[in-house]
Design a protein around this nucleic acid. Structure first.
Lengths: 150, 150
DNA sequence: TCTTGCAGCTATAGTCGCTAGAGGAATTAG
DNA sequence: CTAATTCCTCTAGCGACTATAGCTGCAAGA
């Protein structure tokens, strides 16, 4: 039986995140010790590994919930799971191609910057004027690619 | 002079987003008409285009705030702007390589799925068991790549 | 045994970058 | 003049955490 800290270490999921997963019912409420501390067994560890892994692969929690629901009922067709993975693959491919266009533009911007004063800074200029753009990252649908953090 | 709706149309930034930018002081408070409606001039439009463009390139608002601060002082060196853009480029590159690993994994997963019942579905298995992974998306720093939406 | 200090507990609020809704006032089209 | 649209402010919600406050529990050293 693992305490939450040990489970965190074992899976690479942070302690508050584990509690958060419990709160949103992605993990079941675990046993408690006499002193009210959470105690986890192998099943919980497997489940959390599954979640961690799926998160790493970019699945949103709702998709993971769906996948866990499927795997809890192993006689059902896996077509649904397949479909989720397919949907995710398409999303990933789209994000890759947008990011590549974006990278090219950033590189171009940086190459043109002679690093003098702001007055003739290409970075500022390119950002300020869309005419300087090589790519059309102006046509909507771009919002998806913006990262949660830098 | 443009109303907020016209400015929105002209820049492609949604109306509530413009108000939000004003709220967080990324845009200055504009003039108002007699009926208390916001009125924007060319300067505001340029500034908003700058923001829009930088957001498209994935810059977080704080970086944009910094860039706007720099461009207000055109005699300073543009090294700082360059550095911000470089940081962003590195972040983008990191995300690309992780996404490519991710895509490969998803493709592998889908190829192995024989689409019978869950019992022999590789999708669930691969996600649940890290041993099946071709790539090392297990070593931290992965959190960044997770998308805001699917 | 005592104490120190870390780990755990609950609950709440904050993060980022918006987005949605309520409930009104102003402007514009017909 | 009316009706539709746009605008206003304010508040709350999203996803997926993360941080803080103010406790209690527990293991190891003196």
């Amino acid at each position: 039986m693992l305490t939450i800290g040990k489970l965190s270490e074992a899976t690479g999921v942070k302690v508050p995140t584990i509690r958060y997963y419990e709160q949103i019912a992605l993990l079941p409420e675990p046993e408690r010790s006499t002193g009210n501390q959470r105690l986890y067994g192998k099943a919980a560890q497997d489940r959390l590994n599954f979640i961690r892994h799926a998160r790493d692969l970019g699945f949103p929690l709702e998709a993971i919930r769906e996948l866990l629901g499927l795997s809890d009922d192993p006689n059902r067709s896996c077509a649904a799971a397949d479909q989720i993975a397919n949907r995710q693959l398409r999303a990933v491919n789209a994000r890759i191609s947008r990011l590549i266009a974006l990278r090219d533009e950033l590189q171009r911007m940086l190459q043109q910057c002679s690093c003098g004063t702001i007055a003739d800074c290409r970075v500022i200029e390119v950002l300020g004027n869309h005419e300087h753009c090589a790519h059309d990252h102006h046509e909507g649908a771009m919002a998806e690619l913006i990262p949660p953090s830098m």
